[in-house]
Simulated scan of single mutants.
Amino acid sequence: MDRNESPRVPGRGAQSASVPARFGLAARETDRDWLDERSVIDGALPAVRTTVTEEHPRTILSFNQSPDIAFDRSINAYRGCEHGCIYCFARPTHAYHDLSPGLDFETKLFAKPDAATLLRRTLAARGYVPKPIAMGTNTDPYQPIEARYRITRSILEVCLETRHPVTITTKSDRVLRDLDLLVELARRRLVAVGISVTSLDPKLSTLLEPRATTPLRRLTALGKLVQAGVPAHASVAPVIPCITDEFIEGILARAGALGVRSASWIMVRLPHEVAPLFREWLATHFPERGDKVMAIIRSVREGRDNDPGFFSRMKPQGVWADLFRTRFRLACKRAGIDQVRLELDCSAFRKPALDGQLSLI
């Protein structure tokens, strides 16, 4: 092995488990001599296993006052995400638990099995005013462990019972497992589902999003949602210059042909530890174009790897950003995606029953 070459971690997005220096935690560094000798003696490194820890928070609904996003409350049933998307802006949240935003984020997961009970308690509180709850804002509600825990489904059951509006963002066709609930919610204008499609190349997808559903299955899921009458949104996100931008037109063309009438795009964001992790990923998989990719990203973020400012973080500037906007707009027009906006219904909300008693509020 070249002593300057990092070993590839099979089946994972991040290539290391570095701990962020910004919290003053002890750094983890692999001894190269040990690594070289170990590979000779024991062979290839073993696959990194996923572990899940159950946690029991006091609340489940998070509120925000960010002026540049369309929701003010959200639920994240899980911490960390096994999909392992290398570009995930949520990776730094693992650092608050003294864990790595790298491999730990996608292998050391946390589940909140009490989520539905906590939500029911929140919705029953005196003075609660309903507004759409966003799911999938930090980690994917339909990552693989949802098949075991079914926390997302239990939350949707509470939303249906209370007639509470909810939005979902995912990279998985596992959302179709809850199609029965989604159809009932859609009949009452209580749900909208967005599915993110980054590329049309399954090999590239396995590098970018190693444990997410393949692009074709995500597109198929969009079509099935449309056929079932569930409002479906195609998210071309994130757009990574010189890596995924070539697929903008193709994704939108396929989504439009499936009947999708709403779409959006987001430029890749690299906050905190995501930037060095992404650079490491580029050096591992695309060393010949890594410098160009980062140069374009910096050009749309005023010379920085990331722009954390409200509004500007969602609106990259410069020639490349203008080019992507124009391509996206024209592709939507050709695909017949007319950006239909659905207003979810908050007027039908009814407080849940607690402890077997019907609410009198």
Rank of each mutant, 00 (worst) to 15 (best):
L208K: 09
V175E: 00
L342C: 04
S66P: 13
G356Y: 04
E184I: 06
A283W: 14
F105P: 03
V197G: 07
P20N: 01
L207F: 09
V226M: 11
I240S: 06
V52L: 11
R126N: 07
R73Y: 11
L358W: 15
L344Y: 02
R177G: 11
I155L: 03
R73D: 14
F328C: 10
A21Y: 10
L156C: 01
A70P: 14
L118K: 04
R329E: 08
A353T: 01
Q15T: 08
K131P: 11
H94T: 03
E106P: 06
M1R: 08
P316N: 08
A147L: 11
A147Q: 12
C242L: 15
G136C: 07
Y128E: 02
R126F: 09
D291R: 15
A295N: 10
V226A: 00
G250R: 03
T244F: 12
R298W: 15
V319Q: 15
V191Y: 09
L219T: 00
Q227I: 01
P241E: 05
P144Y: 02
A47P: 05
P141C: 04
R8L: 08
R79P: 08
L323F: 14
V260T: 11
Q15V: 09
R187G: 11
S18G: 07
Q143G: 07
T93I: 08
P132Y: 01
L358F: 12
L360G: 15
D201S: 12
T244P: 08
E37M: 08
Q357P: 00
A115E: 06
G80L: 02
A321N: 13
R121K: 05
S359H: 13
Q227G: 15
R329C: 04
A116H: 10
A232S: 05
R298T: 11
P92H: 00
N64R: 10
F23E: 06
A255Q: 00
Q317H: 07
S262F: 04
I240L: 03
Y96L: 14
A353P: 00
K112R: 11
A95V: 06
E249T: 12
A147T: 02
S18I: 07
L45E: 06
D345N: 14
A237N: 07
T53Y: 08
A212H: 07
R304F: 02
P130W: 02
E280T: 03
A44H: 07
D178K: 09
P231K: 13
R269Q: 14
H272R: 13
T284Q: 15
E288H: 10
R329S: 04
G24F: 05
G43T: 01
V183E: 14
R3H: 14
L118W: 01
V40G: 10
R301C: 02
E29D: 13
T198F: 11
